[in-house]
């Protein structure tokens, strides 16, 4: 018998995502976790620029639209003055890892007690599918029309692995939303990340592999299959830094 899942109370109205997009699932997971942890009325979302910006239109929760890439710095300032609030930045891969890599990596470097959720759809979704720092080798995008040449443009970046191996942070994981099982797993990662913030353990990041059927020129089902068959071979799912204190 299936469980009935009630819509989290801070979700107010539908958001404007394309059919088959993963953003809606991820936002829903974050809201479910916040509610389960009793933090849904104690949260501020610094939001990135990109499809992630749609989060602002659909939630009855405090949020702030940061300029492109700067959400981790804004989050750091928020946490400094308002340590009692849970601060969750919500950003795309272009926002967090291309234009915002300095802010994103330095927040991890300082081990800021914030939670960063990045949505990795291997391109710049909002602006029509340009190459990003997570675009796969040979992937065709509007700025890598013959397929990404990684020798010239760099290889896809694995951010959670990078900060987990280099810095003294609390938690780093990568989830996905291509199947019910992966969605449940991702929810448990987001929960651990927010719990670690509640427990003042420091920086937590969860990257989530997310389909972008419109810009991938695929049907929603093909896009889910691409994650399963291609992406998670490279972007391994799992936890790269476990919490040391588990309560």
């Amino acid at each position: 018998m299936g469980k009935t899942r009630k819509t989290p109370s801070i979700i107010d109205k539908p958001m404007n995502f394309c059919p088959g997009c993963g953003h809606g699932i991820i936002i829903r997971l974050i809201c479910e976790v916040l509610e389960e942890l009793g933090q849904d009325n104690n949260v501020i979302f610094p939001i990135g620029v990109g499809c992630s910006s749609n989060l602002g239109g659909g939630l009855v929760a405090d949020r702030f639209h940061c300029s492109h890439g700067r959400a981790a710095a804004v989050a750091s300032g928020m946490k400094a003055v308002s340590p009692e609030n849970i601060i969750v930045s919500y950003q795309g891969d272009g926002d967090a890892y291309s234009i915002g890599i300095a802010e994103t990596i330095n927040a991890a470097y300082r081990n800021e007690n914030i939670t960063v959720v990045t949505v990795n759809n291997t391109n710049f979704g909002m602006t029509g599918g340009q190459m990003s720092w997570t675009t796969m080798p040979k992937q065709k995008t509007t700025t890598s029309q013959l397929g990404r040449d990684c020798d010239k443009t760099g290889y896809p970046m694995k951010f959670p692995e990078l900060v987990a191996s280099q810095f003294n942070i609390a938690y780093a994981a990568r989830g996905s939303v291509h199947s019910p099982a992966s969605i449940n797993k991702t929810k448990s990662y987001i929960k651990k990340a927010i719990e670690s913030q509640m427990n003042n353990e420091g920086y937590s990041v969860v990257e989530v592999m997310s389909p972008c059927p419109v810009n991938w020129n695929m049907t929603p089902v093909e896009a889910m299959d691409r994650i399963k068959n291609e992406l998670i071979d490279y972007f391994e799912l799992g936890e790269f830094k476990q919490r040391e204190v588990i309560k």
Binding site: F64, G77, V81, A102, N106
Partner: peptide, 24 residues
């Protein structure tokens, strides 16, 4: 109060945005 040595002036002003958005 809090003091953050930012990685750049760009990050610095964005941290201030965070503080200001929270009303301090």
């Amino acid at each position: 109060g809090s003091f953050i040595q930012a990685e750049s002036e760009l990050a610095g002003i964005n941290m201030i945005i965070g503080g200001a958005a929270c009303g301090y």
